[in-house]
């Protein structure tokens, strides 16, 4: 639907990546997010240990990796939902380590969640309105005087309606968010994130649990974000989707960034194949290697349970 502009923005993003070496931690021409030495341990397990990584402004960057690679934990560190043991990162040149989650969001870095967090017993419209920043009516004393926030609320509602129409949720406007289908909730969560007017949208598995019919529409919306000048960083498992929409791919395994590159060549990178299939996938495994792999798998499982039990 945005065919012309789409090609422009996409071309611009691709042009920025054109001459970059395909190395982990490569410097980008215009990074919006720069991460250095972020480490997070759970007991004895190092879930995240990222040396250096940059995310290019105005691009769609995918973060992929096998299960238990620490992608979601990494997301949690960056967005202030979990405290990193060490490391620092900047967003738009502003230091963000140790900044609480709500301030990260206010700075323009907004995330969604792997398990959608639609606010079930609020209406779709209320969900949307909640996303708007700087609301006068969110101050206790002003809230008591409806006249002081009505005007702003009307403007917020207008913007929310616009977004709902774009995401085809306008018919559900007055319904409780809890009554939406899984895919619609994903859409609502994304739309709600846009109410914050972010510069960087971080999507944690936007396609998980979405039926195929909605997938195309969701993909369109993600591409749309770039067209509107936002940057996108997303975690995904579905390689078709990654190839389809991303401009650049960062690969994580065992907590570290192991490779970077454009989507069409990244999957043939030996390091990535090793990460997904195990280093010696072509040679028969010895007893001790089997044992080791088993342990690794157990650790990964443990880390995932840890993450989920949050």
């Amino acid at each position: 639907m945005h065919a012309e502009t789409a090609t422009d923005r996409k071309a611009a993003a691709l042009a920025a990546f054109k001459d970059l070496p395909h190395e982990p931690g490569v410097a980008k021409p215009d990074p919006i997010l720069v991460v250095d030495n972020v480490v997070r341990r759970f007991g004895g397990l190092t879930a995240v240990d990222v040396g250096h990584v940059e995310v290019q402004r105005g691009s769609i960057t995918a973060l992929i990796g096998p299960n238990g690679a620490g992608k979601t934990t990494f997301f949690n560190q960056l967005t202030g939902f979990d405290t990193a043991d060490s490391g620092e990162w900047t967003f738009n040149g502003r230091k963000m380590n140790g900044v609480p989650a709500h301030k990260v969001a206010r700075a323009g870095m907004v995330r969604t969640f792997q398990l959608t967090k639609a606010l079930s017993r609020l209406t779709v419209l209320e969900n949307m309105r909640l996303g708007a920043q700087g609301q006068k009516g969110e101050n206790f004393w002003r809230a008591l005087i409806p006249g002081s926030w009505r005007g702003q609320e009307d403007r917020i509602t207008a913007r929310a309606d616009e977004l709902l129409a774009r995401f085809k949720l306008d018919a559900k406007r007055e319904d409780f968010a809890g009554s939406l289908s899984g895919g619609q909730r994903k859409l609502l969560e994304m739309a709600r994130a846009l109410m914050v007017e972010p510069e960087l949208v971080m999507l944690d598995e936007p396609m998980a649990g979405v039926n195929p019919a909605l997938t195309q529409s969701l993909l369109g919306h993600v591409k749309d974000l770039r067209e509107q000048g936002m940057s996108v960083l997303f975690v995904e498992h579905d390689m078709d989707m990654v190839r389809d929409i991303s401009d650049w791919v960062i690969v994580m395994a065992q907590g570290a960034v192991i490779a970077e590159g454009p989507p069409d060549t990244i999957m043939s990178d030996q390091r990535v194949i090793d990460a997904y299939l195990g280093a010696h996938h072509d040679a028969p495994l010895s007893e001790s290697e089997l044992e080791e792999q088993l342990h690794e798998a157990e650790d990964a499982l443990e880390a995932e349970i840890q993450e989920e039990s949050k």
């Binding site: 967005t79 989650a101 907004v110 995330r111 969640f113 967090k117 606010l119 079930s120 609020l122 969560e189």
Partner: peptide, 15 residues
């Protein structure tokens, strides 16, 4: 009310 539903979601929206 949003906090009652899910406080992480509210946090992610800058509150």
């Amino acid at each position: 009310k949003a906090i009652r539903e899910d406080e992480d979601a509210v946090r992610s929206l800058g509150k």
